[in-house]
Amino acid sequence: MPTIFSALSTILRYVFITIIYLFIFGIIRMIFLDIKKMDIPRPRQIPKNMAYLQLLTDKKSLYFDVDSVYPLDTEHIIIGRSEKCDISINDLYMSTRHVQLWFEDGEWYIADLGSTNGTYINGRKMKDEPLILDSGDTIKIGQLEFLVVI
């Protein structure tokens, strides 16, 4: 028994230290995202505790109308070029029904609706399966980039 214990303990000491540093790294990362989010103040028209999409792309460079903020005020939202979409943006690089967002079990999900040019989350092209959005994530659709604030 003592030898097993000392062998285990000798190995686990590396595990402990690794986990503690991963923990510290995780917290620092979360704090960093927190600060990044705080740089852009919450727009006045958005009620507290409501999630919203903040436009990061410079509006002046665009030829079509786009709001700087889109509140996520219903539980199911489709973004696309069609006027039937909940958020309709006339960006030619966007598909008719481009991407959908929905709220389920306390989380916001995102799924690409088979768009032509794809959807990029934090700079990476998303695959077919839905993803859960975190505050501070960025979504790139067509020519536009949005910051998710939850």
């Binding site: 686990l12 595990v15 986990i19 503690i20 923990f23 995780g26 979360m30 989380e107 959005l133 975190d134």
Partner: peptide
Amino acid sequence: MKKSIAKRPIFMVALINVLAF
């Protein structure tokens, strides 16, 4: 993108707890 549970800090607290005890 949501981090998987294993990357969440509270999970690491739990992991340290379970392993150490």
